[in-house]
Amino acid sequence: MTDISTTPSGPAAEPRTLAAGPPGDAADLLRDMLRIRFFEDETQDLFTRGLMRGSTHLCQGQEAVSVGVCRALRHGDAMTCTYRGHGAVLAMGAPLDRAFGELLGKAEGLCRGKGGSMHLTDVSVGAYGSNAIVGAHLPITVGHALAARQRGTGAVAVAFFGDGATNIGAFHESLNLAAIWRLPAVFVIENNQYGEYSPLASTTPITRLADRAASYGMPGVHVDGNDVVAVRAVAGEAVERARAGEGPTLIEAETYRQSGHSRSDPGTYRPPGELESWLQRDPIKLLQDAMVAAGRASSEELSALREEVRQEVAEAARRAIAWPAPDPQTRFEDIYS
């Protein structure tokens, strides 16, 4: 197992420099993470105001994983994710307003208002869907990878999933098959420390989930999931390995879910001080601090960027709220391909 981690035993360790790369690179990564953060904050507000129905599972604190991995992909690659998948779909390039429209059940939503939060999909950017069933999308990723290999497209398939999914059959079957056939797949564990309400230690007998890669003869990499540059570097290596025909990789990105499991969860099961400790290593804060330290941006420039993105997200939400609901007759459309 390769360990590219600045947090070997939790959130206390100092981050490494995040602002490496060409001028403007760090600002682009920060902009992408801010879009996701403000999208999730706005989503929570819309639910509170009664404008969204159903449930939602937010990803504040996990933005560096989505952005870092998706930045390593190219047009034509395929991505699947969990029901906590707003960030991954946005990181693939889905438009903010149509993503809001889908959560609001609008006719202009990404899935014409039929998928909602837990089935957010935008095939035009390679986002082949969030999935409401834990781990059910991993075999779909294997299918995408097999299709890419059979067609000779050079595409790579990526799956995001939580630490809890590593304990179900679909995880083992998918990694086993991908390894046997040396498929162009990358499996990304978003280890946010909890499977719903259960801490990892209560459900899993090991502390490094990337160690499970050894069972399938594939590389396993542990990375600080709050370091967007580190995540992108690890993902880039795994994606290029897959594209070169060298088979799949398992990445464990260690991060933290700042919100509850769902919008009704206050997170009272967390030990005292745990959330506050992880908030000191918020991925957006880490990147901003590193940019200032490296002379890539001033505090004033970062404040201006945050406000610009906040307004962009708010305007996208306003457009989506104003869109009409679907015609009831459209419920009979798109049932069969």
Rank of each mutant, 00 (worst) to 15 (best):
H144C: 06
R296H: 08
L250W: 02
F100A: 01
R296E: 06
G295H: 09
H172W: 11
P139F: 15
D32Q: 10
A165V: 04
G115Y: 05
P266Y: 08
R232S: 14
V125K: 07
D32N: 06
G116Y: 03
G101V: 01
G109M: 03
N176P: 01
A88L: 09
H86G: 15
V67R: 02
F38A: 04
L287D: 11
D327A: 15
E102T: 04
L34M: 13
H75T: 12
P95G: 04
R318I: 10
I4A: 10
G101K: 00
A178V: 06
D227C: 06
I4E: 11
V158E: 02
E301L: 05
P272F: 00
E108A: 05
A132H: 13
I206D: 08
H144A: 12
R71A: 08
V89K: 02
E240K: 02
I335V: 15
I180S: 12
R331A: 12
R243N: 06
V292H: 09
S298I: 05
G225I: 04
A317G: 10
A94F: 04
A179P: 07
K106M: 03
T2L: 13
P205R: 13
L18S: 04
I4F: 14
G154P: 12
T207A: 14
D327I: 09
V221T: 02
A170E: 14
E173A: 02
